[in-house]
Design a protein around this nucleic acid. Structure first.
Lengths: 190, 190, 190, 190
DNA sequence: GTCTAAGCGAGACGGTACGTCAGGTCTTGCT
DNA sequence: AGCAAGACCTGACGTACCGTCTCGCTTAGAC
C-alpha cells in the first residue's frame, strides 16, 4: 500500500544514501558514541533536518544503514543446500562471527541503544534480531526433517540458546571465532 | 597500603548511603536514563561534587548500589547443600530470574552502559558478571564430582551458555520465569 | 504598464485574497510573531511559494492586507468639510485611535518589522506612514488658509509632533482614547 | 536588598563584562539582528549557557550593556543648573540626539524588540523609557517653579509629546540634529 | 587551642549534543 | 507559466547534561 503522492519534491535518495554511508564510516572509524548526529549530517553534506525527516535517532539511522549493507551478504543459509546441517550451521555462525568481529562495537552500541530506548528496541528486534533468530530456527527445523537434529527438541528454544551464547560473548568482549562456532555445534547437536 | 591521612574532614558515610538509596529508588521509579546525576544528588540532599568524589559515572554508582543491595540476598547456591544439583541450579536460576524481573530495566541499562563505556565494562565484568558466572561454573563442577553432570563437559563453557540463554531473553525483553529455568536445566543436564 | 502575458496559467486572484484574509485573521487571533508564513499559507490553502511570488516577507503581506482593508474606511478627513478644523482633526484622531486600539499589536509589529528590515521600512513608510502624515499636514494647511491655525507654524513639523505623540503612546502600550485626542488638539491649536 | 547568597561559586564579573562588551561591539559593527546569541557568547569567550544564566534574551543583554554604558554619561540635566530652562533642555536633547545618532540602529532594534516581546517591553520601559521620560518631566516642573514654563501646562503630557517627537523621527530614520532640538524648544516653550 | 587538610553544600562555568522551528529555495507533476 | 505539495539547506533557538571549578563552612586529627 503505497502512499498516494499528490505532488511535491521527491525525497532525495542521494541524501539518504550519503547519510547511511557517512554514518557507517564514521561509526566504524571513531566509535558509535563518539559520533554526533550533526557530524554525520555535515560529513554527508546534508542538512541536519533532512536526517530528522527520515530517522528519529542516530540508532535508527545506523540500524537502517547496517541493515541495508547486510542485504548484500548471503546472510541466511540456503535451505536447499544438501550438506549436513552441522556444516550449514557452522558456516553460518562463522559468517556471523566474522561480521560481529568487524562490527562488534557497532553491534554492541545498537544493542545498548535498544536497552535505553524502547521504541528503538522494537524496531531493532523486528528488523534485526527476530529475522536472524528465525534463520537458525528454520535451519534447525530443516535438520529435524532430515533427521539430523532430534525432533523432540524445541527448535525455537535452541535457537535462542545459540544466539544467547554468542551475544553473551559479544557483550562481554570475548573473541568470537571458529572454535566457538564448533563448540556451539557440538553442544546443541548431540 | 592506606592513604596516609594527615587530617581533614572524614568522608560522610551518610552521604554515600543517601546517594545509593536515591539512585536505586529513582532509577526504579523513572527508569535509568530518565534520571540524571544532578537529580540523584539533589534527591539525596548531597552536592554533585560529593557524588563525583566517589564514583566516576552514574553507572558506577548504580552498580555499587545494586551490588550492595544484593549482598543482603543469599546469592550463591551453597556448595554444602546435598540436594540434587539440578534442584540447586533451578533454585538459583529462579532466584536470579526474580531479581531480574524486578530490576530488569536497571540491569539492561547497566549492560548497555558497559557497552558504551569501556572503563565501566571492566568494573561491571569484574564485580558483577564474572562472579555470577563463577557461581554456576562452581555449581557445575560440584555436580561433576557428584556424578550428576558429565565430566566430559566444559563447565566454564556451559556456564556461559546458561548465562547467554537468559541474557538474550533479558535483553530482548522476554519473560524470565520458572518454566524457562526448567527448560535450561533439561537442555544442559544430560 | 501591464506585464506582457505570453501564455501560461494566470495569477489566481483568489489565492491572493485568501492569503490576505488568512494573514489578518491569524495575526489578530494569535499575534503577529506567533504566526509563521507556513501557517498562513496552509490556512489559506495555498502553496508557500505562491506567497513568495507576491510578497517578500510576512510584513509585506500583512501591510498589504491591512492597507487594502483600510481602503474601505473613509480614512482622510474631507477637505470640503466646513466644520472647524479642530473638530475635523479630533474626529480624525479619534478614528485613528479606534483603529489602533483594535489593531495595536499588528501596528506595533509592523513598526517593529520596519526597524529590523530596511527594505520593508521603505515600503511601510511610503505606503503607510507618509500618506497618513500628509493627511494631517494637509488638514493643518487648510486650517491655516481658514485662519484657524497660525500661518507662522510649520504644518509638516507639527504633523510630525502629532504623530509622534500617539506613536509614543502606542509603542509604550498606553491607552489611546478621546481624551488624548483632545489633549493633542489643545496643545497644538493654541 | 541583596540576594542572600548561601554559597556556591560566585558569578564571574569578567564573564558578564566580556558579554556586554562583545554584545555592544558586535551589534554596532554588524547590526542588531545580524548578531546571534551564539556569536556574542563565542566572541566573549564564554559558554552560551552562561549568557542564559544572566539574561533571557539578546535584547535583555544589549539593554543592560547599553544602560551600563550610559551610566558613564552625565545623562540627566542637573536641576541645580541656574541657566535658563530652554538652554538646559536644548543641551539635554542635543546630547540625547548625539547618542541616538551613534546608536540609532541599536535603539530602533530595542524598541522593536519591546514590541515583539512583552516581558522585554516591561523591562525596557521601566529601566530605560520611563527614567528618561521623567528627566524631562522633572526639568519642565523645575522650569515651572522658575516661571520659565507656564504652570498651566501638564509637564508629564508635554514630556510625552517631546519624546514622541524624536521617537517618530528616530523610527522613520530622519535626522536628529540641533535644529530639531531647537524646533522642539520653540514649539513647547511659550 | 590554634593550625591545617580535606569533605561538604551550593552553584557558576566551559562544553557538547540535542530536537525544534522558521525562512527561503528547489523540484515534481498537475492545470 | 502559475500552482499545490513538499523536500531541501541554512542557521538560530532554548534545553539538558556533563564534568570542573570556586566559594565559604564544617569537621577532626596534628601540633
Amino acid at each position: 500500500m503505497n502512499k498516494e503522492s499528490t505532488g511535491g519534491r521527491p525525497i532525495s535518495a542521494q541524501a539518504s544514501a550519503a547519510l547511511k554511508e557517512a554514518a557507517l564510516r564514521l561509526v566504524r572509524a571513531k566509535g558509535y558514541n563518539k559520533v554526533s548526529i550533526a557530524v554525520i549530517a555535515k560529513e554527508a553534506g546534508v542538512a541536519r533536518q533532512t536526517l530528522y525527516n527520515r530517522w528519529n535517532t542516530k540508532a535508527d539511522l545506523v540500524l537502517d544503514a547496517l541493515f541495508e549493507e547486510a542485504q548484500n551478504y548471503a546472510a541466511a543459509p540456503s535451505l536447499n543446500d544438501t550438506r549436513d546441517s552441522r556444516v550449514l550451521l557452522e558456516e553460518f555462525l562463522t559468517n556471523v562471527f566474522h561480521h560481529l568481529t568487524d562490527n562488534g562495537d557497532m553491534m554492541r552500541a545498537l544493542i545498548a541503544a535498544a536497552q535505553i530506548d524502547r521504541a528503538f528496541h522494537d524496531t531493532f528486534y523486528a528488523k534485526f534480531v527476530l529475522p536472524r533468530d528465525r534463520m537458525i530456527t528454520d535451519l534447525l527445523r530443516l535438520a529435524q526433517t532430515r533427521g539430523e537434529f532430534s525432533s523432540d527438541r524445541n527448535a525455537e528454544l535452541v535457537s535462542g540458546f545459540i544466539h544467547g551464547a554468542f551475544w553473551y560473548r559479544l557483550l562481554n568482549r570475548k573473541a568470537l571465532n571458529a572454535d566457538f562456532a564448533r563448540a556451539i555445534i557440538s553442544e546443541f547437536f548431540d
